[in-house]
């Protein structure tokens, strides 16, 4: 057993800096994707809940389309498909955009669930005091929504992080593609894929637990 692990290290060690660099890149992509997906999600959720048909239906269609199609196909549509219409993006931009739209549809549904959970009296009392609808949303409703959606949102962040591996298919040198490249020259797929899996695991676990700790700090407030 010890020998196996030692052997493993001997194989993997020289490539660790390269892999960690790729992991850092994964984190960078994830941060961009997550921030953008919150914007997308918030806009779509507010449209969906607006009660205005002209906003509601496009939002519904968006959610239906994104949730009903594979993320990989969405990435291909944006990276390979859009250039046909002259919209050409770098793999990084196309990939980030595709994953943000994908994540956004899930974030939208999470926010919508949170909105539904807030009693209508909260909104009515805000409007009754002369707050505009937008102010009522911003000051009264959303702060309450934020608290209940932290757990599902942290899972969604972990999903976005894992989904960045799909970007290996559009030549983005992130962790998965970097591992593939190394495997191609070392012929040690087991060692490298396990090691890469461990790196992913470390990142997703940190993000989920980090947010849980944040949630607990919010929770003591009321």
């Amino acid at each position: 057993m010890f020998d196996v692990i030692q052997d493993w290290w001997v194989v993997v060690l020289p490539y660790v800096p390269l892999l960690l660099e790729a992991a850092l890149f994964v984190l960078q992509i994830t941060v961009c994707v997550v921030l953008l997906s919150w914007v997308v999600g918030l806009v779509v959720a507010l449209c969906r809940a607006s009660g205005v048909k002209l906003l509601e239906w496009p939002a519904r269609f968006f959610i239906w389309f994104i949730r009903g199609t594979p993320a990989l196909v969405q990435i291909f549509i944006i990276y390979f498909g859009l250039p046909q219409f002259g919209i050409k993006m770098s793999p990084f931009v196309a990939g980030t955009l595709a994953l943000a739209l994908n994540g956004g549809s899930y974030v939208a549904e999470i926010i919508r669930g949170g909105l539904i959970g807030i009693p209508n009296g909260q909104r009515e009392s805000a409007l009754a005091l002369g707050l505009s609808r937008a102010t009522a949303m911003r000051r009264v409703i959303l702060p309450q929504v934020v608290r209940v959606i932290i757990p599902p949102i942290s899972n969604e962040i972990a999903s976005s992080l894992k989904n960045t591996s799909l970007l290996s298919t559009i030549t983005l040198m992130e962790l998965t593609l970097q591992t593939e490249v190394i495997v191609a020259s070392t012929f040690r797929p087991f060692e490298f894929y396990i090691f890469t899996a461990l790196i992913y695991l470390l990142m997703t676990t940190t993000c989920i637990y980090g947010l849980q700790i944040m949630e607990r700090r919010f929770a003591v407030r009321y």
Partner: peptide, 15 residues
């Protein structure tokens, strides 16, 4: 803003 209203369920904002 000029017509106050109070409800059966107090509806204070919990946060």
């Amino acid at each position: 803003r000029e017509v106050g209203m109070v409800f059966q369920s107090y509806n204070l904002w919990p946060h």
